[in-house]
């Protein structure tokens, strides 16, 4: 059914897509209740828009497209009145990767797998998600919007209500930490988390 280019009965959506959509939202917004609401909102918006479904993509891809908009709206609303992340904390986290003479405390090593070997590897992505979870929520959100969803810097600053300096510090911290986490938990053993 998910392959067909016609809309299935909305009654089946919950069975087919709700867990996937929920997981998609949960990874990004990290709040169960809000993620659940977004699943519901996505289905309701899809119900309204089902006449406009072109059939060019699968039903699943179409639903994810709707959910991406809902997630952006959620961030915009959530961060409208919340002060920006503490820059100092982010800078401390960055400093922690370097010693007093500003060398890497733990030097980056050689990664043997090739990108194409990694992309298809579900266990790698699970490890990536675990590493992402270890970042503060807003830092992970900024990173996801930029590096996965490829949203431009200006829009991310607007949606998360942060300055461009702040965004840059968050992205740098996220890159340092994720690189380190993936190296320790995946590339050094080329395998999944052992715990």
């Amino acid at each position: 059914m998910s392959k067909s280019n016609i809309i299935s009965n909305p009654d089946h959506w919950v069975d087919h897509y709700s867990d996937s959509l929920f997981g998609f939202a949960l990874t990004r917004i990290r709040n169960r209740e809000a993620a659940e609401n977004l699943v519901q909102e996505t289905f309701l918006a899809a119900l309204q828009a089902k006449e406009h479904f072109s059939g060019k993509s699968s039903e699943k891809t179409w639903l994810i497209g709707i959910m991406k908009h809902k997630i952006i709206d959620y961030f915009r609303h959530k961060y409208r009145e919340i002060p920006a992340t503490d820059l100092q904390t982010e800078e401390q986290a960055i400093n922690a990767f370097f010693d007093r003479s500003e060398h890497f405390k733990k030097q980056p090593t050689h990664w043997s797998p090739q990108p194409r070997e990694i992309v298809e590897n579900g266990e790698f992505w699970k490890t990536f998600e675990k590493c992402l979870q270890k970042l503060p929520a807003q830092t992970a959100q900024a990173f996801t919007l930029r590096e996965i969803d490829r949203i431009d810097h200006k829009k991310i600053c607007k949606v998360l209500n942060i300055s461009s300096t702040n965004l840059w510090v968050m992205l740098h911290r996220a890159r340092l930490q994720l690189r380190h986490c993936l190296e320790s938990n995946w590339f050094e053993s080329y395998g999944p988390f052992l715990h």
């Binding site: 996937s20 699943k60 891809t61 990108p115 590096e147 993936l182």
Partner: peptide, 16 residues
Amino acid sequence: HLNFLNKILPQYPQFI
């Protein structure tokens, strides 16, 4: 490593 991650991350699967 950063270039490696930058290259693969947009292919983060929407569903695993």
